[in-house]
């Protein structure tokens, strides 16, 4: 559970698709002029990432990795097909996007009208392929974690495009220098937001320490220490007093 939570927050804030690794920048810049369209594209990205990352995880585990074909029989144990991963991943993504488009159009015309125009764009969104490639490079260890990774990376991307779209709607009323207007200022704002997001980097660094150590540190505040030392001093005084009493009693 802790592992899941950590991956979740890490993918949203620390390894944010847009601000940390610049994935999906093309559509991020092109479709961020209005909040409403940005929300549509963001939702579509969350959805497609959540579907394709676990799917590609399965492909990676059972077809591509070295020794992954063992389930076919022992003679396949030393095949390594990982060089095929690009072509297989992108084919999965392109077909999934087409499939999703068809299914959504059939069963939910309303959703299709809001997402539909963005779905073809998504096949060539670097964030989608990037999600799968990072999943492979970081050796995500279970299906559930892959699902989590896809979903939370999607949310990270969604937050990023939502934020920039809101800023761009506001910036229309500011006096930006002519040559910087539009694209230029968007780049610089994204850069500044990226620097802001870097400060999340320190959020999850304690994963190597046992959690018990942290609790101990938390409970001993300076006040407690003072009280403890006071108590100890008083106890010592009491004991000394008793001993002196004993001495008095023994040696009148």
């Amino acid at each position: 559970m802790l592992e899941h939570l950590e991956l979740f927050f890490k993918s949203i804030f620390i390894d944010n698709m847009v601000f940390a690794v610049f994935l999906g920048m093309c559509s991020y810049l092109a479709v961020s002029k209005k909040v409403a369209t940005a929300v549509g594209l963001g939702a579509a990205v969350i959805f497609v990432l959540t579907v394709t990352v676990p799917l590609n995880w399965l492909l990676d585990q059972y077809i591509l990795q070295e020794g992954a074909l063992t389930w076919l029989g022992p003679e396949f144990a030393d095949y390594d097909l990982s060089f095929l991963s690009f072509i297989l991943f992108i084919a999965t993504i392109a077909t999934m996007v087409q499939l999703v488009e068809i299914v959504v159009e059939k069963f939910s015309p309303a959703l299709y009208n809001s997402l539909g125009i963005f779905l073809p764009l998504i096949a060539v969104n670097c964030a989608i392929l990037g999600g799968s490639l990072f999943m492979q490079a970081r050796e995500i260890s279970s299906f559930a974690l892959a699902l989590n990774y896809g979903f939370s990376s999607g949310i990270g991307w969604f937050l990023a495009i939502l934020a920039i779209a809101a800023i761009r709607e506001k910036i229309r009323y500011s006096a930006v220098p002519g040559p910087l207007r539009g694209l230029g200022i968007t780049f610089i704002i994204t850069g500044l937001m990226g620097i802001g997001f870097q400060s999340f980097g320190g959020m999850l660094t304690g994963d190597n320490e046992p959690p018990a150590a942290e609790e101990v540190v938390k409970t001993i505040s300076p006040v407690d220490i003072k009280e403890l030392t006071q108590d100890a001093a008083e106890i010592e005084k009491d004991q000394e007093a008793k001993e002196t009493n004993k001495d008095l009693v023994l040696n009148p």
Binding site: A20, F22, G184, F187, T190, G191, G194
Partner: peptide, 10 residues
């Protein structure tokens, strides 16, 4: 750091 690239391109 990565965000500097954006500012340079800007």
């Amino acid at each position: 750091i990565p965000p500097a690239a954006l500012i340079v391109v800007g």
